[in-house]
Design a protein around this nucleic acid. Structure first.
Lengths: 144, 144
DNA sequence: GTTGAAAAAACAGAGGA
DNA sequence: TCCTCTGTTTTTTCAAC
């Protein structure tokens, strides 16, 4: 069953996207719609899982994980890699991908030295290639 | 100036991470601390920008952007690439990286066909290599 | 850090355009 | 489907300790 997202839904989603704690009352003002209706629409978006969660974004620099890197790895020990990554604090993202390498890992470390250590711990799983991120230009942006 | 994040802060952050709209009252109950104190700590985390924002995560499948891909591109027309990506709805992430390729683009399209179209529009900027994501195993996870 | 009272916001219905 | 109006509950805020 498909949910039709109309322009009003879109406006609400745009407001919530970067201000998830915004009160219904304020959303109501901004889009000139009554609070019950706004609440109703948000509930529907949540029920249909169009809104999958409200999350809090932390400044990774303050958590000593300000260095972003991407590691491409080729391995036959898939489960081992997945288990390893799930347990590793440095790993924020893991994708099974097509191509020469079969996994892409996004890693947040305190420094490039720590990245080297992390990559060292991957050698027994398979050959890898790392790209240090010099600048995060866009991140996690969804245009509605 | 450095902010010392203690265990109580960490607990609050863990609760907020995937439930950004959780009321102070509930956080207060869960960690057995008075509401004003919880509120006070959250305000400090916000002021110090340790909490950088509260965001809403959408189900990209419902937005007709359920296919994740990564494109590595090598170009000398950096500004052109950045401008192009900022204007492209498909692009959610863009990183300047080290290595043979100098940019990594994360793309969300409706299908692989749409990915092909997108990659076609990049040819004039530079040679690129794309990896279709077959499975999103971990995404945007921060272990505190 | 706590308590407790005042203010503000969210919720739940009913009735109607 | 959306609105307004209402009362009720919950949450937030802010004082004093």
């Amino acid at each position: 069953m498909d949910h039709q997202i109309d322009d009003i839904d879109k406006k609400i989603m745009q407001l919530l996207q970067h201000h998830a704690r915004m009160p219904i009352s304020q959303i109501s003002k901004e889009i000139s719609m009554s609070q019950p209706s706004v609440k109703d629409r948000i509930l529907k978006l949540e029920d249909k899982k169009i809104i999958s969660e409200y999350s809090t974004v932390f400044n990774l620099r303050d958590l000593n994980r300000g260095t972003t890197s991407f590691i491409l790895i080729k391995t036959e020990h898939c489960q081992e890699l997945v288990d390893f990554c799930e347990g590793a604090r440095e790993v924020t993202d893991l994708f099974r991908i097509s191509g020469e390498f079969n996994y892409l890992i996004k890693v947040q470390t305190a420094s490039v030295e720590e990245l080297a250590e992390f990559q060292d711990s991957l050698v027994r799983i398979g050959p890898s290639k790392s790209h240090i991120c010099l600048k995060n230009i866009l991140e996690n942006r969804v245009l509605l």
